[in-house]
Design a protein around this nucleic acid. Structure first.
Lengths: 240, 240
DNA sequence: CCAAAAGTGTTCAGTATACACCCATGA
DNA sequence: TCATGGGTGTATACTGAACACTTTTGG
């Protein structure tokens, strides 16, 4: 019988830090030997019969020390199959994303780093990040799970500006971002204004999700999480 | 030691049939027992250390009888992890696409079916197709590998119309599709006109790829094929 | 009152769509 | 010469980006 392939799951864990006003990526030093001590994405071997979502949560809670309840959403990104990516032998790596609720950190060994300044990582994790970053930016405002997972159930325009800037590299005009958010299904402006920001300035609006994007009573049949989100509209329409 | 996960590769094989004027999906009856005799997507177990692209070609040539040289391009779609999707036990299924050069078929057992009328298939393959179809439509004119793989190195506007209609469900106006193709990098109008169509009508223009999209001297490091294609533009730009 | 920063309305350009009309073929 | 169907040009609507101006806070 042919020896079967090993499958590992590597997770790009994103957390919005309201103080740093930026989206941070969680990495942790490796405990065991290949690259022991070096920073790496949290990852685990996929158990037999284990679902990708379970393995993802296991990686995030186990390797980063994030409480399970703080993991707000997960989803697929891409698969990496270079045979020599792991010195121990050929291992398939499925890259996934996970979002952590936007609170302050606390844990010890976990490093939360801005996406623009990720330190060199073990294995091919640098390349995984390079390849997957545009995919993450694309999910903002298009994948409700991802967006709500990052920003939480209630957030301000100012925070939305910060998150957008972190992921895309550009800070949109508040007016235009507001119109973009108006078009996001399940998201609505509230009448409330948040407290003003430390530097002063007009207090930003509060936005809230109407549909229960958090929680997770989602379609769960065969596909792991919301990997498949429409992306751009198809080319050309006709006749309506 | 924990038993590791089994990984199978299931392929959505697309071929443009110039006679039928449609994109067809290749399925074949299963030889072995789970669902023996039932139609299914071509799939194989991923060997240890085998690359996804190799396994994909192995599935297409082995299960569909397509010559290896006719497989023009391959790429990732999504991963399906429902533990009960295979009665033999939990098996991960990585769905990939493959394109076959646009020639007439020949093989015996392989069924080439329009995407709109795929018969019921074994395993969860119906769901795989349902989930992946929008991803395929999205790749047309955006992923050069996919598009060139489907249409070949040289094709006519009429064929481009047929392919677009097959994948998206709408038949664009020839004029508008021409402008769309003008914006595709590496694709250019030639001065030639093809022979007129059977029904008469003006002979369509011939289009040709300038860059060597066929062949495949592509980036090949860690990621299998062109799974990661930009999708839609990110939300909002600012300052140039 | 001034600086900071969000919110409102408007302008502008680029893009997508629809369609009238033209052209080239087969029958 | 008619039917068929792609090619050309153009009008219209829509969308996204930019920005002047207003509003609301802290100092």
């Amino acid at each position: 019988m042919i020896e079967s392939t090993l499958v590992s799951v590597d997770v790009l864990v994103l957390r919005f830090d309201p103080d740093a006003r930026a989206v941070l990526l969680g990495v942790a030093p490796r405990a065991l030997d290949p690259f022991a001590g070096a920073l790496a994405l949290p990852g685990v071997l996929l158990g037999r019969g284990e679902r990708l979502r379970e393995a993802t949560r296991r990686a995030v809670t186990g390797k980063l020390g994030v409480p399970d309840a703080a993991v707000t959403a997960t989803g697929q990104l891409a698969t990496f199959d270079e045979p020599s990516r792991d010195p121990r032998g050929p291992t398939l790596s499925i890259a996934l994303w996970a979002t952590v609720a936007p609170t302050r950190p606390d844990d010890g060994t976990t490093t939360w780093t801005p996406l623009d300044a990720v330190p060199p990582l073990a294995f091919d994790h640098d390349r995984i990040i390079t390849d997957c970053r545009p995919l993450l930016a694309d999910k903002l405002w298009r994948d409700p799970q991802f967006t709500a997972g990052l920003l939480g159930g209630e957030f301000t325009t100012a925070q939305a500006l910060d998150v957008t800037e972190s992921l895309t590299g550009d800070r949109p005009y508040p007016a235009n971002l507001g119109r973009t958010m108006d078009r996001v299904p399940g998201l609505e402006r509230t009448a409330q204004h948040a407290a003003a920001l430390p530097k002063g300035g007009r207090p930003p609006l509060v936005w809230r999700w109407t549909s229960p994007t958090t929680g997770s009573p989602r379609d769960d049949n065969a596909r792991s999480d919301s990997s498949v989100v429409a992306a751009g509209a198809a080319v050309h329409r006709r006749r309506s």
